[in-house]
C-alpha cells in the first residue's frame, strides 16, 4: 500500500501555547485511521492544520508525495456541526455540487452529486433544503458532498458527535460501507474510544495538550464490522481497554506501547492480539 498522507514533525503554537507538538504519522492509501485524544488536546488544531485552514508552525505535510502548502486540492473535510457546514440557502443537491463548481462541467457536477447522494441513501432528497432534514440526514449530505469531491484524503472532525446514539451507529456503518465500496482514504478525529476502535484500521492515541502521539494501535478486527458482534468480540474489548488506558495514562505510558509499531513490544502485542482474534473467531465459528 502506498502512503497517502505523510506528516512529519508537525507542530502548531498560538503565542506561548503549544497546541500540537511534533507529530509524525502516515496514512496509507485506502486506510481509515482514527485519531483519538482527550478533549482540548489539539485534535481540531491538527485537523485544521492538515486541511490547510491554519498554517503549521513546524514540520511538513505531504499528500500523495506532494508537499502541501495552503489548502490541498483534493482534500475534503466533514465537520462535527453539520448545521453550520451545509449552506442553508442551497438545496441538498446544490450543497453537494458546491465544491465541484468551477472544477467540473455542469452535467458532471449533477451526475456526481446525484451519485454521491445515492451512496449515502438520500437519492430522493436532492430538492430539499438541509433544514428540512433530520440531523443524521444532514450529516449524510455532508458526507455525500465530501465523497462527490472524490478527495485523495477525507478528513472528519468528530463527525458523529452531534447525533443521537442510534443515528450514530447507522452513520458509522454507512461510513464503513462507502469507504469499502469507494476505497476512500479517511483520517477521522474523535474523542470516543469505542468509535475509534470500531471504525479504524488503526488508532492513533494522542496525549493531553500539547498533543503528541502516545500510541499507534493496529486494529485487528475483520473488515466487515457489526455494531453488536464486533463490539462484544474479545479483540474489540481488549483494544478498547488498551486505548482507554493509554488515553487516561496521558504522558506516563508504559514503554511497551510507545509509538513504535516496529518495536519488540509492539510485535509481542500484535501476536497476542492475533491469538485473541483467532480464539474469538473460533468461538464465533463454534457458536454458529
Amino acid at each position: 500500500m502506498s502512503t497517502m498522507l505523510e506528516v512529519t514533525d508537525l507542530g502548531h503554537r498560538y503565542g506561548d501555547h503549544t497546541a500540537i507538538d511534533r507529530l509524525s504519522f502516515t496514512v496509507a492509501a485506502g486506510e481509515l485511521v482514527c485519531i483519538v485524544g482527550p478533549s482540548g488536546c489539539g485534535k481540531s488544531t491538527l485537523l485544521r492544520t492538515l486541511s490547510g485552514l491554519v498554517a503549521s508552525t513546524t514540520g511538513h505535510v505531504a499528500l500523495h508525495g506532494d508537499e502541501v502548502r495552503g489548502v490541498p486540492d483534493d482534500l475534503a473535510v466533514v465537520f462535527q456541526d453539520y448545521s453550520r457546514s451545509l449552506f442553508p440557502w442551497l438545496t441538498v443537491q446544490r450543497n453537494v455540487e458546491f465544491p465541484l463548481k468551477r472544477k467540473v462541467s455542469r452535467a458532471e457536477r449533477r451526475a456526481r452529486a446525484a451519485e454521491a447522494l445515492e451512496w449515502v441513501g438520500l437519492s430522493g432528497a436532492g430538492a430539499k433544503y438541509p433544514w428540512q432534514l433530520s440531523g443524521g440526514m444532514q450529516q449524510r449530505v455532508a458526507i455525500a458532498r465530501a465523497l462527490a469531491y472524490r478527495p485523495a484524503l477525507l478528513l472528519m472532525d468528530e463527525p458523529f458527535a452531534s447525533v443521537d446514539a442510534q443515528t450514530r451507529f447507522e452513520l458509522e456503518d454507512l461510513l464503513l460501507r462507502v469507504r469499502r465500496e469507494h476505497d476512500t482514504t479517511i483520517l477521522l478525529v474523535t474523542h470516543d474510544i469505542d468509535e475509534s476502535v470500531y471504525l479504524g484500521d488503526r488508532v492513533l492515541v494522542l496525549s493531553k495538550s500539547p498533543a503528541t502521539i502516545v500510541a499507534n494501535l493496529k486494529v485487528d478486527l475483520p473488515a466487515e464490522r457489526d455494531q453488536i458482534t464486533t463490539r462484544e468480540s474479545d479483540t474489540f474489548v481488549a483494544l478498547r481497554a488498551e486505548t482507554a488506558r493509554l488515553l487516561h495514562g496521558g504522558g506516563t505510558v508504559r514503554p511497551r506501547v510507545q509509538a513504535d509499531p516496529e518495536g519488540v513490544a509492539a510485535r509481542f502485542l500484535a501476536a497476542e492480539r492475533a491469538e485473541q482474534a483467532a480464539q474469538a473467531s473460533k468461538r464465533h465459528a463454534a457458536q454458529n
Binding site: 486540492d73 473535510v77 456541526d81 453550520r84 458546491f98 465544491p99
Partner: peptide, 14 residues
C-alpha cells in the same frame, strides 16, 4: 457570518 461555513468553503479550495 458563521466561520464554519467559510471554513467549509475554504477547505474545498474556494
Amino acid at each position: 457570518l458563521d466561520e464554519q461555513l467559510v471554513d467549509t468553503a475554504r477547505a474545498f479550495g474556494t
